[in-house]
Every structure is written in structure tokens, then in C-alpha cells.
Design a binder for these strands. Structure first.
Lengths: 209, 209
DNA sequence: CCAAAACACGAATGATCCTTCATATATTCT
DNA sequence: AGAATATATGAAGGATCATTCGTGTTTTGG
């Protein structure tokens, strides 16, 4: 995200040497591990440090407090996710609308599902975190990526691309999350996913695509 | 919900006298107030009791621990929500599909939005809570209510009502949550909501409704 | 009206946790 | 090499919290 974090969530210092970059990454990974193994309410600075193989003090060199760590972790996650979706969108410029929709849904769905346990704990770690800026930045990147893609569809003539695009994203992202949280069996998930693709495609066609 | 809570989340005792029923309700309301005013991470048993005008000890007469309180709170919320939606569905039996969809989306959307701050804190209070059973029970009630409604639509002939119904609910519930979490301006929310209604209607018509 | 049951109280206990800081080691630069 | 900077350590301080339990009060049923 190219949006500045709330000041109070900024890192204390940026890693300058190679070893500290390694440390910071280990801390991120350790955070996820602890979240997976113990849950948010047992996510302790000490536990994270221990799992990362460093001392608490070291953690506090890079994150002024626990919240900043969680903020940075979510930032990293959303950045990577946005990268993936953007790449898929770019690779589908000029393709038929049907291919676009299918690819978009597949990419997002897979990204969320392939490590559903991680997705879950990241959601939980974001609660009680002032991450509106993060979410908005992510949404904005997605908006731009998909709008640009849709605009290149052959025979596309959307009356109001922005609204259609926003609706499409809310529906896709929302549905994935809902299915995900209900923890439906894989078969049911796949069936709904297929329906979702068809539904979105029909919607776009009706809207001028 | 008619599903038994996980044993460890059961209330210690049920209120028998009138005054204790008042107490329990005050505790629920106080919990919401504290959540609104301070957030999950400052939700303490003492604070809740204080706000409810009772002592901590009293709280522990009805809830064996904090988690049980939050569990019961979410149970109460989902029960009421399900009641509302069920009533709307019932009142639309036999109506045209278009009216059904519009009413369903309106009912759910309004229920979630009219006190969006409460909705938000309830979501946050459910994190790190073993509430799968609750969610599943809610989903099941909704499934039955909407499926029964859709089956009464004039000219309805769904090839696979169950899948269509499940998709519809995931899409609606998911989209509402997504729009809700992004905290879009009211105008944008209304626009998307309208699109969602149209989208769902087209979907149902294509599926045999 | 009285005993039993239900309800209410809240200080004390024991545990967990975030964060700091004085100190020590490693790396870079000149 | 030596100074300056970056990185790492972890014990200790200070604060918050969930939960218990001995005790007091109110209601109910006979």
C-alpha cells in the first residue's frame, strides 16, 4: 500500500543491514505461527519473539508496540494479495468478459482458500486494529485493476463502469468471505463458486459488457 | 438457535426470578455499551458489571466466564436477526420473485445497517469465539426460510433450488458485509444495493424463477 | 412466618502481559 | 584498527484482568 500508516503505527526504525531484514521477516512468520497455534488472545510479544528466535527487545526495535506489528503484518498480506490480483487482471486485458470474470474469481478465491487457516487468523488479528486505511488502499488498487481490465473487453460499452465495477468487487469479495466463514464442505464451495461466476457474467453482460 | 451450545459455554444457571432476568438483560446491554465505548480489548468483566449496575460476582452467577457471556450475546443477536428475516420471508410467500428478492435484501441490509456500530462490535466480539455452531444454526434457519419462500413464487421451477438458494444467500450476506466493512458513503452503499437487487433477480430468473 | 433457595456483593488472589532500559555484540565506514 | 552505528539481549517494572469465595440480602413456598 502506498498510503502512509497512522503515525502511531509506524515502525520505529527500518532495517538497514541484511541480518535485520531477516529478523523482521522471521518476526512476521513467527507471528503467523503463534496465531495459528495459539490464537489472537494468546499472541504475546514474548511468544512471538521466542518463536522467531530473537528477544523481545529486538522486536521492539522494529515495532513500537504490538499493534504496529499486527498492522505491518496485515499490510504485508494485503500488498501481496493485491500484487497477485493485479497480475491476473493485467494478463487478461483484451480477453472476453467471460474469461475475465472467471479468472478474477479464481484468483481471489484461490488466494483466500489455499491457506484458509492463515486467512482466518489474519482476519482475527485485524480486529481492533485501525486498519481502515489499509483496507481502503487495497480496495482502491483492486478497483483500478479490474476497471482497467473490464474497459479492454471486446464489445464492452458500460454505461457506468465505476458502479458496475464496484458492485462486482463487493459481490465477489463478500461472497468468498461468506462461503469461507461458513466453512462449507469443499464440494459445496465449488458449486457456489461456479454459480457465482455465472451470476457475475450475466450481470456484466446485462450491464453492457 | 435450537442447537446446544458447546458444554463449556453453557450458562452456570438460568434466571428463575424476575429480578435476575432483568439482571441478565442489563448485563447483555452493558456488554454492548462497553464494546462500543472501549472496544474488545478493554472489555473486562468488571467494566461490564459496573456498567450493568451489578457486581462481578453476580455476572459469574449466570456466565461461567467471559467467553460464555460473549457466546450468549451473539446467540441472542443472531436469534433476533433470524426472527426478523424469517418474518419477512413468510410475509412474501406467493409474491413475485422480484418482490421476494427486494424484500430479502432490504430486510438483511437494514438489520445490519441501522445500528452499524453495534453490528461492528458484535463481529469483533465473535472473533476467537467457538461460535461455528451459532453460525451454522443461523445459516440453516435462513436456508429454510428463503427456500420455502422461493418455492412459492408464481411460475417458479428451479432445477436445483438448494444450490440456487445457497448461492443467493452467500452472495447477499457476503456483499452486505463487504460493503459494510469498507464503510462506503451512504450514497455508494445505496447504489450498490440497488445493483445487487437487480443482479440477484436476474440470477433467479435465469435459474428458473 | 420461617426455612430454604435464589440472588447479590466485592476484596483478594494469582496469573499474564506489554514495554523499557542498561548492557553487550556485530557491522560498517574512514 | 578504531570510532560510529546498527543490532541484539532479557530481567524487571508496572499495570491489567479473570475468577473465586465467604458473606450478606431478598424472594419463594409451605
Amino acid at each position: 500500500m502506498d498510503v502512509p500508516a497512522p503515525r502511531h503505527l509506524n515502525a520505529r526504525k527500518r532495517p538497514r543491514q541484511a541480518r535485520s531484514a531477516v529478523t523482521v521477516d522471521a518476526i512476521f512468520e513467527a507471528t503467523i505461527q503463534v496465531l495459528l497455534a495459539e490464537g489472537v488472545h494468546r499472541l504475546t510479544t514474548t511468544r512471538v519473539a521466542e518463536r522467531a528466535g530473537v528477544s523481545v527487545g529486538t522486536m521492539y526495535q522494529y515495532f513500537p508496540h504490538k499493534q504496529a506489528l499486527l498492522y505491518a503484518l496485515n499490510e504485508r498480506y494485503l500488498d501481496r494479495l493485491a500484487d497477485r490480483i493485479e497480475a491476473v487482471c493485467l494478463s487478461h486485458h483484451g480477453r472476453p468478459t467471460a474469461a475475465m470474470v472467471a479468472a478474477l474469481i479464481e484468483a481471489y478465491w484461490d488466494a483466500k482458500t489455499e491457506r484458509s487457516d492463515v486467512t482466518r487468523v489474519l482476519y482475527s488479528s485485524a480486529v481492533e486494529l485501525d486498519n481502515e486505511a489499509l483496507i481502503e488502499a487495497f480496495a482502491h488498487r483492486m478497483d483500478k485493476a479490474t476497471a482497467a481490465m473490464l474497459a479492454t473487453a471486446p464489445n464492452a460499452a458500460y454505461a457506468n463502469l465505476d458502479l458496475v465495477n464496484a458492485t462486482l468487487l463487493s459481490v465477489i469479495f463478500g461472497t468468498v468471505r461468506n462461503v469461507f466463514e461458513r466453512n462449507l464442505p469443499a464440494k459445496a464451495q465449488a458449486a457456489i463458486r461456479k454459480q457465482l461466476v455465472a451470476m457475475c457474467l450475466t450481470y456484466l453482460e446485462g450491464a453492457g459488457g
